[in-house]
Write a protein that binds this DNA or RNA. Structure first.
Ligand SMILES: [Mn+2]
Ligand SMILES: [Mn+2]
Ligand SMILES: [Zn+2]
Ligand SMILES: [Zn+2]
Lengths: 143, 143
DNA sequence: GCGTATGTGAGAATGGTTATCACATGAGGG
DNA sequence: CCCTCATGTGATAACCATTCTCACATACGC
């Protein structure tokens, strides 16, 4: 049931509505900067602090997820899947795919081999999605 | 035994020697700030730019590895294992253990299920090492 | 409608990291 | 040994993503 609200129990405002619908519309991983630029292109106006706060609120509510970094900027993507999972981020087009957590075995063996109790983990896989993969006869690199 | 040099083919200097031996001595994950503080405590002086450059050079040579972040600061640890691997970072004492890469299966299934070609990945496991785990008589919680 | 908790935004601040640039020096060649 | 100069040093400024400040606006429960 994916009718989770972008801002949970927080208030809505014209700015927040524009920000959330743009995040939805982008359909791929984006930085705060990408988001601001896209909003400006649509004539929507929102202060930088407002965008940061809206993104933080959407992340808080689970409607948005942080999916790594691009350069020195945080990367986010629309995703409200409730179960624990990780992300495949295409470095060419920015599409984000969900993938199951591959760490059950690693977690268990950390315990068995080192007595180490894993409580958190960072996992992000970067690569090239099907649509961005150069075709065999084109022999080109994208980007 | 790995007699890789901290600075590869770069020059050495009193500052670089102090920085490398402190990184060795710490024996756990550290931030640039930790490193500077430890040096100062030993009466060694090195400008902030020098420490950053030395750490970058040691990382470049493979003598040091970046093992995630603590708050907003990059975390490093002494590690010159040449094979691909990841890290168990104890959030209590900062000890760093190496662990095999758990992603062969994830990489293959990303390809099989999504046509996604994984080219890079971030994996860091955080938790509590054996020595930092509270003893059973102290009121354990089993995770 | 009212009151107030909450959102907005221009600008300043923060803080980790990097760039500048004048000066010092390690180390290889002579 | 000594020169030389590529490379390292460090005080300082700059960078830049992100957060804070604070006066003002407004969503929304009552
Ligand atoms: Mn997700
Ligand atoms: Mn390592
Ligand atoms: Zn996981
Ligand atoms: Zn790996």
């Amino acid at each position: 049931m994916a009718d989770r609200l972008p801002y949970g129990s927080g208030r809505t405002s014209p700015q927040r509505r524009a920000i959330a619908s743009m995040a939805e519309e982008l359909g791929r991983a984006f930085t705060i900067d990408d988001l601001e630029r896209a909003l400006r292109r649509k004539g929507k106006r929102a202060g930088v602090a407002t965008v940061y706060r809206a993104v933080a609120a959407m992340e808080e509510s689970g409607w948005l997820e942080r999916v790594g970094v691009r350069g020195s900027k945080a990367l986010y993507a629309r995703c409200d899947s409730p179960a624990h999972h990780h992300h495949l981020v295409c470095t060419s087009c920015g599409i984000v795919l969900a993938t199951d957590c591959p760490l059950e075995f690693a977690t268990h063996s950390a315990k068995a081999e080192h007595g180490f109790t894993v409580t958190e983990h960072d996992v992000t896989l970067y690569g090239v999605c099907r649509d961005c993969r150069p075709g065999p006869e084109l022999g080109e690199d994208g980007d």
